[in-house]
């Protein structure tokens, strides 16, 4: 059986790649993708901890399923926002979205 640490290394990598992308990318779609990476890293952790530490129970798995559903909904909303922003401003560069700044 594969050791738990390998899964955790993968998820940690995904998490920090996601954070890195979130901070440095200017394209809103790229930021959204980075966010997805962060969320999926967390979900991997849920599944892994459940599988290895509490093999008798299923709560971690359920959380993972919830997380997937929420991620899907959130992506839909985010893309809708991005499309609207593009229609209004003509760009999806976050540096240019500062119309609401006081």
């Amino acid at each position: 059986m594969i050791k738990m640490e390998y899964y955790l290394i993968v998820s940690t990598l995904m998490f920090f790649i996601g954070i890195y992308g979130f901070v440095v990318r200017k394209n809103m779609l790229a930021i959204l993708i980075s966010l997805e990476l962060v969320l999926n890293a967390v979900e991997i952790n849920f599944a892994v901890f459940n599988r290895y530490l509490f093999p008798g129970s299923m709560e971690g798995m359920f959380f993972t399923l919830f997380g997937i559903a929420i991620t899907a909904a959130e992506t839909a909303i985010a893309i809708a926002i991005i499309i609207n922003v593009y229609r209004n401003i003509g760009s999806i560069n976050v540096r240019k979205i500062n119309k609401m700044k006081g």
């Binding site: 954070i19 979130f22 901070v23 930021i31 976050v94 540096r95 700044k101």
Partner: peptide
């Protein structure tokens, strides 16, 4: 600044 990315950076 209103730049959420900066905030996240500071947060992390």
């Amino acid at each position: 600044s209103g730049q959420v990315q900066l905030y996240v950076w500071a947060y992390v």
